[in-house]
Design a protein around this nucleic acid. Structure first.
Lengths: 348, 348
DNA sequence: ACTTTAAATGTAAACGATATGAAAAAGGTA
DNA sequence: TACCTTTTTCATATCGTTTACATTTAAAGT
């Protein structure tokens, strides 16, 4: 706002009042007479006065904005999460500043620094797949910056967290595949260090166990870059297809991996679900109109974002330091469509 | 940053120097001796000193952040645009603050106010479909706020603009349909007041003319809310399907409208392209794996965002007031897939 | 020894708002 | 009229920086 805007000083000068009188009148203080208040308010209105937020922030010691770090905004899941965050933040008079880590640890650190440079009152973060040290966040937390994790959390930092029941989501999905009659179920997932990955992996394994199916490590493929690197997924898919006993179903654990796997199977002329069934975690709105319509584990993305923000703002607005932290676990939802349908006929 | 951070004053006190000496040392001024500089720099480093951005902004009169207003972040086109903006802004040391109008005029005004409240150095905006008065922006521009339009622009404000060749994009798309042998080509588009809509509509009409096809106003449907309101699209589709001579092809003009139309046709068991061909403007990454794979007009979204930001920053950083404005027109790209293929067999 | 000059550091006034405490004005009571 | 309240207004310090200007100190020149 380097453009000429009217300040409190201008009003004081014009109205032959002191700066403090104007300031108080503007905030409707009881100390100021009704007459003066009216004069000031009218003048302010007329000249479109807006308090300078930088001055206010400096004086008050907070910026009324919160920082967000996600891996990629260009991803249905995260953009829905951000929607929820924005909604909650705005309703409480806060701005959000969004940054992307693009699944890179270095970028994550850089973004976090950039954000704290730029005066945020709190941080909402989903870790990048590369991240296995959270020292950069620990330091900030120690300095007093409120942090709330969502989606991909760290167990090394004690704070509020919002996640989904990844174990159950993956368990239900795998169990659905088993119930449909699939026996060779592969799993393509992301970096092994990410919380989300290991929880979903456990759910997958447990379901296989409970279904009396032996776990085959060859059926589990890791894509360390979480779907950002198409080559990784391509290699994973090709390795699965090259196996003597090819899988008859694939459970993909991440949004990007799911849609990429679908595209790759297409390109290789693999019939879904006749040759291989596909079921994946994804929040795409297009699951219904994909070819074939895609069975999916969907996350309550908007609610994740909203809840995480609510928790962050509760820390920010808390009078006393917060020492009791909570981890909110939201349920996933399984949508069954054609891509896991044994009786599927391509021509509808 | 209301958490206890070290300030320039702390450093000065500890090192028995004046505040200005420290300030100058930190910015490597020639006035300060190498010895002092080194002492200050080392101390600052060690104690992890960060200049308070609010104080700097207040003093320097700018915030190093730019505001963005889009209709919806949860939309491939816009998230790609924002990616481009973020990329350019960050490389020049600027932050972006993103807000969504959700296609509502009131929300747009509110966001713009909120943003200027919160100290931005410039504004990047794509108008909401509802917006037909830009007085709120004119006022800000008059006050000196640099504004750059992208995508949905207003002819009533003179400033830099980044758009795509909407006319040509729609013309090529329609021509492609004509060349494929379609003769009853419908057009579902958004609010008639939006620049994008009218340009694409003209392209559509011109192509029909050039192809010797009479324009049938019954084939042109408007969805004022630009795809946010599914009912509108549903009604448009149903009206088209109820016509005595149903269209044999549909050109959809907006990302959301395209994917929604696809879903609606699916639900109504309309075979694409056998019953009706579909071609639309969309930037979804999933066009290849939709059912059927979707012919699409794609926009260079990242480049739109990057370029718009570059132009905005050039205004912001310009020494003299900018009076010469430029409108950059980028090309669209037509991808031909199965949804417009007369010879299409569902089973690949 | 005394002035000149350059180098290094310091003082203080901004930026725009808020808040504390004091002063002025108005009203009330004896 | 003098004195005390109460109401209303103002002067000023503050937040953390930046910066124009002033001062100090030391070295150099005459």
């Amino acid at each position: 706002m380097n453009f000429d805007a009217i300040t409190i000083t201008d009003i004081a000068r014009e109205l032959h009042l002191s700066i403090s009188t104007v300031s108080k009148a503007l905030r409707d203080s009881y100390e100021i007479s009704e007459t003066t208040k009216k004069r000031v308010l009218e003048y302010a209105q007329e000249h479109n006065y807006r308090p300078n937020p930088m001055a206010q922030s400096l004086k008050k010691g907070h910026s009324k904005s919160i920082g967000i770090v996600v891996s990629n905004i260009d991803n249905q899941f995260f953009s829905q999460v951000i929607n929820g965050m924005e909604s909650e933040a705005y309703s409480q008079g806060y701005n959000v500043i969004i940054t992307q880590s693009h699944e890179s640890y270095d970028l994550e650190v850089q973004n976090v620094n950039h954000l704290t440079h730029r005066a945020i009152d709190g941080l909402l973060i989903s870790l990048s797949t590369e991240t296995n040290s959270v020292e950069h966040l620990k330091k900030l937390q120690k300095q007093g910056l409120p942090i709330v994790f969502f989606d991909r959390v760290s167990s090394e930092i004690e704070t509020h967290k919002v996640i989904v029941d990844n174990f159950k989501g993956a368990y239900q999905a795998t169990m659905h595949l088993i119930n449909c009659g699939y026996r060779h179920i592969a799993h393509i997932t992301s970096s092994a260090i990410t919380s989300v990955t290991s929880e979903r992996l456990s759910g997958y394994k447990q379901a296989l166990n409970d279904g009396g199916i032996k776990i085959n490590e060859q059926y589990i493929k890791y894509c360390p870059h979480g779907g950002m690197d198409l080559n990784e997924i391509e290699q994973a898919v090709d390795e699965l297809l090259a196996l003597k006993t090819k899988p008859d179903a694939i459970l993909t654990a991440w949004d990007r991996i799911t849609t990429s796997t679908l595209a790759l199977l297409h390109k290789r002329k693999v019939q879904i679900p006749q040759d291989i069934a596909l079921l994946g975690f994804t929040n795409t709105l297009l699951a219904d109109v994909l070819n074939p319509s895609l069975s999916a584990v969907q996350q309550p993305a908007f609610e994740i974002g909203r809840k995480a923000t609510e928790m962050l703002l509760s820390i920010i607005n808390s009078k006393r330091p917060v020492t009791e932290f909570e981890t909110v676990v939201l349920p996933t939802e399984l949508f069954i469509r054609s891509s896991t349908d044994k009786t599927y006929k391509p021509d509808q």
